[in-house]
Design a protein around this nucleic acid. Structure first.
Lengths: 199, 199, 199, 199
DNA sequence: AATGAATGAGGGTTCATTCAT
DNA sequence: GATGAATGAACCCTCATTCAT
């Protein structure tokens, strides 16, 4: 990587980091491109060399941040000897909830922007994320003893349930703090998986 | 209600109806107050006599529209002789899903804006909604034979699960069309309720 | 006309006059809407209450300015007892050349923007111009003793010849000063008309 | 011409050809230097090694394209045995009209940019054009039997008349298609020349 | 000679809000 | 209460030009 490429990567990173900071502090809507470039210390036109518009940088940020969270959770999972699929998934959820509890602005950013569509396109099937998420996802189901009627729908329901309940509990402790939610949520996930086992 | 009050109510209704039409057709962001007043046939200044800003009218619309959906579902429930709580809730969900499937712009509007916080404040404990939702909600649990560990968390999880999964399935048939989702979802809700029965 | 309407007319006039001043002094391209509003002493948004964009105000200016020139020439023609069509047209041309020689910025503005298409639509058949140009034009030909093969083509050729030759001669005295051009030009016009007489 | 010079000529030609393509397809105004260099396949900075700015490349293009048209017309004229000056000029006009009718984007480009000033400087007296236009022009008049009061004004009037009338008739068939215009126009030119014969 | 990343002034346009009528 | 003309800050985006490589 030459000097120029190195410089370019720095500029892009500065923009990404600044945008994330501003998006989480004051919201995407209230963040203008002017805000981003002035805080990042580059000229306005430079922004457009790297991103098409505000929503382009947002999408790239989501893929980057969400895949980081998943990678950390998966790394932690590898350190354990957990065997059953249920408990693997519970472990991942637990780990992710803890990560996001520690970093509420990240939670806010991901939750508000990570829809199933984005999850599928930007994380599961895209090479933009710095993690081969699809392999993790498939191998985890293939190696499992138990088989499921419709794994995709199962994952979909789990993600949507976890995502939407944690958002409110972590950020507002409403209707209960996340630690009170956890046992109910884990039970719910186990039941949900049980209900979709193929007989 | 005098002539003047009548006139006032008409103006407010015109604004609400126009705003809903525009919000659902072109999104909240892309709808300006100018758009609303010109289509509603009132002057710009008049808007500010009834609403603080665009987000004020949005919140009032959500309460109004969401409570209409719930009332219709509840009315239909009363026509049946369903006894058990599980099946009552499944019936309500099914009815609401059908309503929203018929009216995708309404679904889009409600789903994107109806968080648990809004649900609690605008629907459950507010008089703005034209339905005494709190009474329906409590009496339904009180009359039930089975008792639950934490009814509020239960309702919370159900609402979040249903809301977030249906959004993607109804609008985009992704990962599956809503009709394929339904059996899984109803099973999931039953399991979820079972997991929270108090022993 | 109420106070408000009066005020509006003043604003529009201020914008038109300022735009004409700037367009003639520094060109249409180099004149920004910011320039216009700041010199006119109104806010930027006000511009868009009266005109769609820069080219809208330009078109309205051309119609206004060109019709003023034609009206003055026609008024002067009425004062004379000229009878023959040839001499009427020569008189009009002569008068218009003199007007434009006195006001080179006006000449520049009109010449660069007055195509045959604009002439026809904005002046001949539009009510925007403050002169019933079509009537003058037709009556002048109808009352004439001599008849012409194709009056529209004749007028077209005369206008294009006069417009394009005068532009260079008045502004740059190139290839000759306009006063040297005049006899040649008038002769040319007479010959041109003669060549289109219907036999 | 060495390898380097050859390479340079290629770059310049690529820029000229690309600029002409873009100017005629989307207009000069809406063509940016970025557009030109990216389509030409050279770097942005390279443009400034060959041309001062967008208007420099435009002027060089006009001279190039217009002189090509005149050269073709003159070549065709040499093939004929036409003797009289009138008919030589009519022939040239006719040939040029036909060329431009076949190539409307070229007509649009030349007509909008070819003023008398440009004609004189870039074509008549400049070596930029790849045709010794001045010699053709003078010899044609010198060899003529008939003599004219002011040949330059005559040529000037003819060029302006032809240029401005053809523009509208070829491109928009307004007020008449160019084929209907031709007889009137040729008559007009003949009369015009007659009116300037020196007695 | 050739490159192309970086610049930043300046363009057009929108729109929530105000206030004299 | 109702109006709607006026505001002007703020927005996004373009692009001619430079200059270190």
């Amino acid at each position: 990587m030459g000097k120029v490429d190195n410089n370019k990567k720095q500029k892009e990173d500065a923009l990404l980091n600044t945008a994330f900071d501003l998006f989480t502090r004051q919201g995407i809507q209230k963040t203008s491109i002017s805000d981003i470039v002035s805080q990042a210390g580059v000229a306005k036109g430079t922004f457009y060399l790297y991103f098409k518009d505000k929503y382009d940088i947002r999408n790239k940020l989501i893929a980057k941040k969400a895949s980081q969270v998943f990678r950390l959770a998966d790394d932690a999972l590898q350190q354990t000897g957990i065997d059953s699929l249920d408990e693997k998934i519970i472990f991942l959820i637990d780990n992710i909830i803890d990560q996001l509890s520690e970093n509420k602005s990240l939670l806010n950013f991901i939750s508000k922007n990570l829809s199933w569509g984005v999850f599928k396109n930007e994380l599961l099937y895209s090479s933009a994320a710095d993690i081969d998420f699809y392999n993790i996802y498939s191998s985890i189901f293939e190696r499992s003893e138990k088989k499921y009627k419709n794994p995709e729908v199962l994952v979909f329901m789990i993600i949507e349930l976890v995502n939407s309940t944690c958002f409110s509990c972590i950020l507002y402790s409403d209707p209960v703090p996340v630690n009170e939610l956890k046992p109910y949520l884990f039970d719910a996930v186990r039941q949900l998986m049980k209900s979709m086992e193929s007989t």
